[in-house]
């Protein structure tokens, strides 16, 4: 069974000169931590937007846990996915608890069950003493961790993280990555996008590298490195497939 199946996806935004996606295809197994990698402008954000139903593809097929992404399933799929955006998508003048209560309420969670879930996650991310501080007083790492909690409150089966460790210190990064491994152990599928390829190599069991709207390669992380003897790590593999030209 796959967590995500994408087949021949095409998307051109209105007024754009170039298509964002040109027949993108990949699939990720259920229950794995996978990396969706690519240089700037490769089509990662468009792909994630289509996966979670924010943007409609022109043509192609998308399935989340065997559910086709369409108008009928859109709301059900939203409930299956948790998205951690690259931005700190929190209200800076609300406390961490107030932020989490708000997003929990939007998911239909309330009362003691919501409160205990918030306490549990705050403790898991080392934020239990800071839950009642306003988020704008938080360090970058604390904001990132709260950002992740907001995406998992509803206990999704698929967690999509966009640069979850950007701008955080080593300790916070280590905690986030360890949490993702533990969370994955509970059977949650995780899709991880990042430009930090050493981190992706450490955490991802499988990666798909996309460039210019197409998947250029997909496979197990160690298998891909082994496939190219000249490549010492995932970064070398990435450059092998996407080249050294700047993507401004």
């Amino acid at each position: 069974m796959t967590s995500i199946l994408v087949q021949d996806l095409h998307k051109t935004y209105k007024g754009a000169l170039e298509p964002s996606l040109k027949g993108l295809s990949f699939s990720f197994p259920k229950g794995a931590i996978v990396g969706l990698l690519g240089p700037n402008g490769a089509g990662k954000t468009t792909t994630i937007s289509i996966l979670c139903g924010l943007v409609k593809a022109d043509t192609g097929k998308v399935q989340i846990f065997d559910l086709p992404q369409n108008a009928t399933n859109r709301e059900a799929i939203k409930g299956l996915i948790g998205i951690v955006p690259q931005q700190i998508a929190l209200f800076p003048h609300l406390t961490a608890v107030e932020n989490l209560e708000y997003f929990g309420n939007l998911y239909g969670l309330k009362g003691k069950s919501l409160r205990s879930r918030i306490d549990e996650y705050l403790q898991a991310f080392g934020l239990e003493k800071n839950g009642h501080k306003q988020v704008h007083h938080f360090s970058g790492g604390m904001k990132r961790r709260t950002n992740i909690i907001a995406a998992i409150l509803h206990q999704p089966q698929l967690l999509v993280l966009d640069e979850p460790t950007a701008g955080v210190d080593v300790q916070s990064r280590s905690m986030i990555l360890q949490f993702l491994r533990d969370y994955n152990q509970q059977g949650v599928s995780i899709v991880y996008t990042s430009h930090l390829l050493d981190e992706a190599q450490t955490i991802c069991q499988e990666v798909a590298i996309i460039d210019e709207g197409r998947a250029v390669v997909q496979g197990g992380t160690t298998e891909l490195i082994a496939r190219h003897p000249e490549c010492r790590n995932l970064e070398d593999v990435f450059l092998h497939y996407t080249g050294h030209a700047l993507r401004d």
Partner: peptide, 9 residues
């Protein structure tokens, strides 16, 4: 700041 995106998701 992305909170609109989060609400829409």
């Amino acid at each position: 700041d992305g909170s609109l995106l989060r609400m829409k998701l």
